[in-house]
Each structure stands twice: as structure tokens, then as C-alpha cells.
Design a protein around this nucleic acid. Structure first.
Lengths: 344, 344
DNA sequence: ACACTACTTGAAAACGGTTACATCCTAAGC
DNA sequence: GCTTAGGATGTAACCGTTTTCAAGTAGTGT
């Protein structure tokens, strides 16, 4: 038989309350709303808290308060500089406002995304950050049924009813293609990312094509290649394009990684960039300025985009009215990989 | 006044139970241990579940069962290919065994790491994945007090009492330095990552130095530079080393990113790699094989390492006895960036 | 002095699950 | 036919917080 009081509590807020000689309600208030408790009480409670090394139990708190101060994010893959950077910014911001982040990956699979969302909702997230607006129907229903706010990041679609924050990919892609056209190129190839379940990739392709059409240029089918997000695939695509009898003099790429692949392969095949081939990327990753030749590309402020997504949700959850479509500006960064075509 | 029964329940497991005409206990069992409930009941329950679109509330479950099926991971930064890849593997594995991951970043700050750990413990994580064995004292106490199992990943320290999984950085670094020494280099510089709060970086430096000492080579202070994890800083370090009157003929680098910087800067300064300068990296990131010249480096199976860390914790939580120090093999990958020194 | 606020504090009921324990039922063993 | 073991199911306590509501305590203006 123990010598301790039979009613003594071992842990938790009750232990703190007992030790400080107050009610659990006061401890809770001291923790969540310090102003609502008198200074003397607060002092006693705080002393008890760190005497006991008390750490609040978040799940209990969530259960009771129905708020988790946690957001969920579902990205296609984390193994991609773009997303890694975005997530890092988002997380840093959330942490600065006392929120946490549940991060999951979908691998560009809509069903997996839905499953992950269900998981996150079950986990009690207060809101969800999604990539793009290409989702499973069940996902929207799930979020509506459970009243979970969300935002689509990386795209700008003011005509859709869903919140989003990002650059206008179509316009940016148009700008990229326009750049090489202005330089005098008439034979322009496209190496894009896979468009399936990826509205960002599609929008970029659309922008590229519009620029071509507006300038009366042809796009023979063999000049448009789609590749997964790896250097190897991009190189293979470049090898193919460069092997064509009637090869393009410029290649516009769906993202920087693809452009790197094209750059590397062109050089490897003995072509000089930009003399023999102009290459333009999209995203402006770190490597773009360091590569030789450095890469002309569309700069997209990824960190800012994701942080804004977090801000939107946090504000929204705080009951503030906020703008639901937010455009993030892009810019064309001209470096060494683009130049006028050789006169032939 | 509603027409519904006054005792009707709107949501939750009780609603499911009511609809299926069973007790909440049965629903819970059908969910967590389907074998323990008769097939007919299970069918009724499952039907009720998706008729209602019921999603279990994880926090309540955690509160009640004291298990969250969630691990926490604290990495210095996610904005780093190495960690991104490791986390991706870990997450994929965890998801395959029904676990989730809480990811946070510490920015190489021990105090922040402790705070994040406290946060994660408060969140009810079942275990913690940490980077290296360089932690705040309070962290070990915290984990001990709360009986939270953890593992240090990315290092191999069989002489320490803490679980770990990773490569022997000292040995691997020794191998790297030995390689350039075998090639005939006698004047070898080191560009390492910041050693402060980073035992991995320190171990690598130690390995480099041991190889030098064992071969009777000098390391003048000006030949050892420490830099943060960015291409720009690495380039600056390279510029400095190459500007020395008595410059080294080979540079061993603390990681691949540093090596890339050295490579880029050497070429930019008009030196040819490996003719004028041999460069060796550490980690074997994707870029290493694509770069020109491709990078000789130490290959480290990052994905496997992190997955094993997850396996260790999951098994440990399942009550299995598992080996607490696990070594992951490294290998030297010789590519184009290293060669014998010019005879002068 | 008195009524009336305004502010602190405490008691106790949720929150939505799990699980120990009790109960009921069925079939096997004698 | 009577026990008994064991499996299926239900009852209800409990997990650690928050929060509503009521009660107590000063301070204010008349």
C-alpha cells in the first residue's frame, strides 16, 4: 500500500491543479488565456507546471476544443526542390503562429490524395493545403461534409469557386515562349512535364501553345515531348529532339529540371547552348544561376506562395474575411541559355 | 421541434452503433480488430459506417488508447536534397504500415530542436526520429521522462547507449581522402560543412584528417574551410582556396553540394577538373552523375537509412526486440572529377 | 447601506473513442 | 440433462482537456 493520498493524481492538468491548489479550469485558463486569470494564481500555476514538467496532451485538447491548430498538406512528392522549398516556407510560417503541419504525399495519384485527405481529416486538421485544382470528386465532398477549409496552391484560377494562391502558369508559360519568339526563333520544341493529373503542367503547355499560335508558328507533334520529373528522362527527351532531321532551334521546358536535362544532353551531344539551341526553363531553382550556361527561366516565388497559402487558412480559421484568389507575380529572368537563332 | 428521437446521436461512433443496432464497443472492435466480431455484425456495421460516411476521430482514439500510430521527425532543414529524400522514404514506409509522420525542422539549433520535441511529445507521438546524436541535454531527459523511444539517424556509433542507424561517417570520409591520396595527391584541402551542432560534419572532418595524418601529410590551417550548405558559400570557399599561392591539388568536400560549388568555381576560374584540381564529394546526390565532369563521391543510401529508422521504431513499439545500432554501408563511386595530380 | 457590475474562480459536463468487465449464448463433455 | 468453457456482445468507466454555468468577491455609484 502506497503512502500517497488515495485521491492524488499522478499526471495531467489535475496534478498541476492539485499542486497549485486550484481547479483544473484555472490551469486551463492560465495556459490558453493567461489574461483571464489573476497574476498571483498564474504564478502559482506556472510554478506547479514546471515543477512537474507538465506537458499538455494535445489530443485531449483537440478532442475537447475541436480545434487542433494543425494544418494538413498533400503534395505529389517531397522529393522535388520546388515542393521542398514551398513546404519549408509553409512550415516555418505555421510554426511562427503556433500551428503545426501534417505533411503527406500522393505521388500524383488522385485516389491516394483522397485517402490521405481522409486520414488528415480523421486526424483533426483545421485546414488543408492542396497542390493545384485537379482533385478527386470525393475530396471536395469530403471537405465540404466535414467543413474543412482548404486552398489550392501553385495555380491562379479566379474564375473557379475555390480558394487558390499562385502564379498564372498559362500566362507565365506564354511569356517564356514569347521570349524565344522575340529572339527570332520559329522552330520551337516543347518538353513538358506529364500533364495527367497535373493542371500546372497543362496550363504551362497551354501557354506555350498559345504563344506559338498567336505568332503563326507550327508545332509538329514530334516537337512536343512529355517527361517525368527526372534528369534522366529529360535528357532522353532532349536526345530525341536533337536527333530529328528537322530539329527545333529552341526548346521551352515545363520546369527547370527538364531544362537542366536538355542543357546537359545538348552539350553532351556536341551542341552549344545557346549558339545551336536556346533553352528556357520554368521555376528558377537554385541551380539555374549556377549552371553553365546559366539558365534563362521564369522566376516563381515558391516560398512566398506557400506561405500565403498558410496565411489564408490561418486567417480564415481566425474568422477573418480574406481574399480567396491570390495571384503571385512571376518574372522572366534572362540569362545565358537563350539567344537569337543562327542564321542558316 | 425535430421529429427525430430525442436520444438520437448526430455523429461519431455512437451514431454508427445506433444505426447498426449494436453497441459502440462492437463498432470499435469491428474497426480495430475485425476478427473479434461476427461476420454478420461486421457487415451491418460496415454498412452503417459508409452510409453515414463515418470517419473515426483520431485524437479521441489516441486519448483513449494512449497510442497514436504517429512518429515525429526533427531534421535541421527540409530544404536539402538529402533530408528530403530521407524523409520521403521514411514517410512512404510509415504510410505502408499505417503510421503517420509529424515533421518539424530545427535549423541546426539545439534549443529549437528541444522545443520541437516537446511539441511532438505533447502531440502524442509514439516515437521520435532525430538527426545525429548532438542534442540538448533536456531532450534526452524529456524523452526518458515520457518514455518516448527514439533513434538517431545518419550516424553509426556502436559505443553509445542510444539507438542509431546510418553510415560510419568517419570511415567513409577516411575512404574518400584515401582515394585522392592513392592517386598521388600530397596537397589536399578540405571544405567541410559547419561542424557546430553537426556531428556528421565533424565525423567527416575527423575521417579526412586521420587519412592525412596516417599518410604523413600536412594540413595547413588555410587549407581547411567550413561553409554553410549553399552553392554560393561553397564557391566562395573554392575561390579562396584556388587563390592561395600554395594551393592544394585536391579538395575533399564534406558533402556533394559543397563539391558542386568547388567544381563550378574551379571551372569558372579557368582551372580544369580533374587536370588541375581533383574534387571528391560525399552523399552521391542525383546531380553527381549528371554534372560535367561527373563527381567522384561517397555513395550513401539515404532512403534505406531513414526507412530502417522507421522500421526500428515501429518494431520497437510492437514490442519486438531489435538491434539498436545498425550500420549502413557506404561505397566510393569513382567518376570523372578525380585523377592523379599533374607532375610539376 | 444597497443594488449592480465586472471580474475571478470552481464544479462538472462534455468531447469521441477504447476497453475491462459483466452478461448472454452456444456447444461440447460427462 | 447438467455443467462448463469460450466466444460474441453490451455496459459503462475512463482517457486529459476545455468550457459552460453558477457562485463568490470586490469595487462603484447613489
Amino acid at each position: 500500500m502506497r503512502l500517497t493520498n488515495a485521491k492524488s493524481v499522478k499526471q495531467g492538468i489535475r496534478a498541476v491543479a492539485a499542486r497549485a491548489g486550484v481547479s483544473t479550469a484555472s490551469v486551463s485558463r492560465a495556459l490558453n488565456n493567461p489574461g483571464a486569470v489573476s497574476p498571483s494564481l498564474r504564478a502559482r500555476i506556472e510554478q506547479a507546471i514546471d515543477a512537474l514538467g507538465y506537458i499538455p496532451h494535445a489530443p485531449a485538447r483537440i478532442l475537447s476544443s475541436r480545434r487542433s491548430r494543425t494544418l494538413g498538406a498533400i503534395v505529389p512528392t517531397i522529393d522535388n526542390t520546388m515542393f521542398a522549398r514551398g513546404i519549408a516556407s509553409l512550415q516555418q510560417y505555421l510554426s511562427s503562429v503556433g500551428y503545426m503541419l501534417f505533411l503527406t504525399t500522393s505521388g500524383y495519384d488522385l485516389d491516394v490524395e483522397l485517402e490521405q485527405a481522409r486520414n488528415l481529416v480523421s486526424r483533426g486538421v483545421d485546414g488543408l493545403v492542396l497542390r493545384g485544382d485537379c482533385h478527386h470528386d470525393g475530396l471536395r465532398k469530403l471537405l465540404a461534409d466535414n467543413a474543412v477549409p482548404f486552398i489550392n496552391v501553385g495555380i491562379y484560377q479566379p474564375d473557379r469557386p475555390y480558394p487558390c494562391v499562385g502564379t498564372d502558369n498559362e500566362a507565365a508559360a506564354h511569356r517564356a515562349a514569347a521570349h524565344v519568339i522575340e529572339l527570332g526563333h520559329r522552330r520551337i520544341g516543347i518538353v513538358s512535364a506529364l500533364q495527367r493529373n497535373n493542371d500546372r503542367a497543362s496550363a504551362r503547355v497551354a501557354g506555350f501553345r498559345r504563344a506559338l499560335v498567336e505568332n503563326g508558328l507550327e508545332l509538329p507533334p514530334q516537337w512536343h515531348v512529355e517527361v517525368p520529373y527526372t534528369l534522366d528522362d529529360a535528357r532522353e527527351a532532349a536526345r530525341y529532339l536533337l536527333s530529328l532531321d528537322d530539329r527545333p532551334t529552341a526548346v521551352v521546358c515545363g520546369n527547370d529540371v527538364i531544362a537542366y536535362g536538355v542543357l546537359l544532353e545538348a552539350e553532351r551531344s556536341g551542341y552549344s547552348v545557346p549558339r545551336d539551341l536556346s533553352v528556357i526553363g520554368f521555376d528558377d531553382l537554385d541551380w539555374s544561376r549556377h549552371l553553365r550556361p546559366s539558365l534563362t527561366t521564369i522566376h516563381v516565388p515558391t516560398g512566398e506562395t506557400w506561405q500565403r497559402a498558410g496565411e489564408y487558412l490561418v486567417r480564415n480559421l481566425a474568422g477573418e474575411q480574406t481574399i480567396i484568389h491570390r495571384e503571385i507575380d512571376f518574372s522572366l529572368v534572362v540569362r545565358e541559355s537563350t539567344a537569337p537563332p543562327l542564321k542558316s
